[in-house]
């Protein structure tokens, strides 16, 4: 006996919508290809328009690495949001006998992740990554060198 209601049958409208989207894109591209005039394409026509200026250099430049930190933070918050999403999709937070322990777990989870983000953004650059050690080593070497020079100069 077949189970009457499988999940993918509820998604048949989504499938129809996807097919419509693909058909729409293909038809629009084909129509524009058919309707547009096919003139000669040369380098002057295909080059980037920069207000009449000659384009200089490639368009792909490298961004500073520092912005990658925010992408990593985004992924972490994304996963945290996905874990909290299942709470909104169910009712275990306010129904049932386990709600208090679940609330405790959720609070601990959010606290851990947010504490980690706070540590990364505030504490870590001050504590470990401020270049103090390099500075110390350099100062020591400089003092030694000055001492040596002073010694040699004394003779």
């Amino acid at each position: 006996m077949m189970q009457t209601e499988r999940l993918f049958r509820q998604f048949i409208p989504v499938l129809i919508w996807v097919i419509l989207a693909i058909v729409l894109v293909v038809v629009m591209l084909l129509a524009s290809w058919v309707l547009r005039p096919h003139v000669l394409q040369n380098s002057e026509k295909t080059s980037t328009y920069e207000c009449g200026e000659e384009p200089i250099g490639p368009a792909r430049v490298s961004y500073p690495y520092n912005y990658f930190i925010y992408t990593v933070l985004f992924v972490v918050v994304d996963v945290m949001g996905a874990f909290l999403w299942i709470l909104t999709a169910s009712d275990i937070l306010w129904v049932g006998s386990a709600k208090y322990s679940v609330i405790l777990q959720v609070a601990l989870f959010v606290l851990l992740v947010m504490g980690g983000i706070w540590y990364v953004m505030k504490k870590l650059p001050e504590a470990a990554l401020d270049g103090k050690e390099t500075l110390e080593i350099y100062r020591k070497a400089k003092a030694e060198r000055e001492k040596e020079q002073h010694h040699m100069g004394g003779h």
Partner: peptide, 10 residues
């Protein structure tokens, strides 16, 4: 597993 995959990809 999906969450760990996100962490290790980063």
């Amino acid at each position: 597993v999906i969450s760990v995959a996100a962490a290790h990809t980063a």
